[in-house]
Write a protein that binds this DNA or RNA. Structure first.
Lengths: 172, 172
DNA sequence: TATCTGATGTCACTTGCTGACATAACCTGC
DNA sequence: GCAGGTTATGTCAGCAAGTGACATCAGATA
């Protein structure tokens, strides 16, 4: 992260990262599939959190309620380390390859949530759509939160995005 | 496309592509930014189509109506070459790097549509959300269409996805 | 015809990433 | 404690993607 933030992602070689870490270059690739993955190792935990939250929701809840709960909980967790999230976001925003990776991670989260919904008996299409909607609202709520110069409130921003998404989808 | 479809994306070298095309390897990179981009050169035209459709919609239309029209029109165009779309989809589905590229292209389309909506006076957040919703419905409609063993009807599938998205978002 | 421009070729080079094999650290059972 | 297995790390050679610099060639234009 330090190197990426300082000189930029492209300008940082794996050799430099390895040297800074006191390891051989080869060892880096044993810990991370590629140079980008360093910034996305946290995605697995986030996915667990989302899936667990979906799975544990009361059976009376509708798909969108379940998804809302999940992304809001994720927001609560992310919010804790705002400075880190911000720096990471800046690094990613400066590089298209990293944005690609970010997008596929989000898509993976969506499909994991969709799978968890299907487990609850939600039908295929609805599950996929609810998950996509949740991720879209999360994404836009996250961006608003990161831009906010004050402390901000990520879960609230996510909820508001979802409300506005609903309004927009209903033709308002 | 032939090479990618035959031996797979990873197993195809740029040297081979260049040879098949009767060109030097260097020349390949003057036509395409990288090895993946070959499969996404059509995205620019699609973006033009979407943006134009958004811009030309009657001023009375709501954001979601405008976006719906745009993605349906895009569906009509894509539908014409179903075999090509299918083969391309299969190649992409077999390779994570290509999926990443696909996702960033879709995200680019979404943000282009959002910009076109803002041009119409739609406020920032609503524009972004409407565009995201449109792309999500397009994506899922497209997948249904591509899986369909019959001739299928892409615009219809997209519309149905949007209807179902609305139902889901409203808590059904 | 002379010249200008754009597309292509050639070459050398960096860097990401992988496979194969060697070595060191660390358990685990006895 | 120690023999044997497992896991993390090092070393090295090599492939393929992508880039910069310079040369060349073909067609358009004055």
């Amino acid at each position: 992260m330090e190197l990426y933030a300082d000189r930029g992602f492209d300008q940082t070689t794996v050799a430099e990262i390895a040297e800074r870490a006191g390891l051989a270059e080869r060892t880096f690739f044993r810990h991370f599939a590629d140079k980008r993955e360093v910034l996305f190792s946290g995605a697995a935990e986030l996915q667990d959190l989302l899936v667990t939250t979906v799975a544990e929701a009361p059976s009376s809840a509708t798909p969108i309620e379940v998804i809302t709960r999940a992304v809001v909980v994720a927001g609560e967790v992310l919010q804790v380390r705002r400075d880190f999230a911000r720096q990471r976001h800046a690094v990613i925003a400066a590089n298209p390859e990293l944005q690609e990776r970010e997008l596929i991670k989000l898509a993976t989260l969506a499909s994991a949530m969709a799978a968890a919904l299907r487990q609850r008996g939600v039908k295929e299409q609805s599950a996929a759509l609810a998950a996509e909607v949740g991720v879209a609202a999360f994404k836009i709520g996250f961006e608003r939160w990161i831009k906010d110069s004050d402390a901000g409130d990520l879960p609230r921003d996510i909820r508001e995005s979802l409300d506005e998404l609903r309004a927009v989808a209903n033709g308002q």
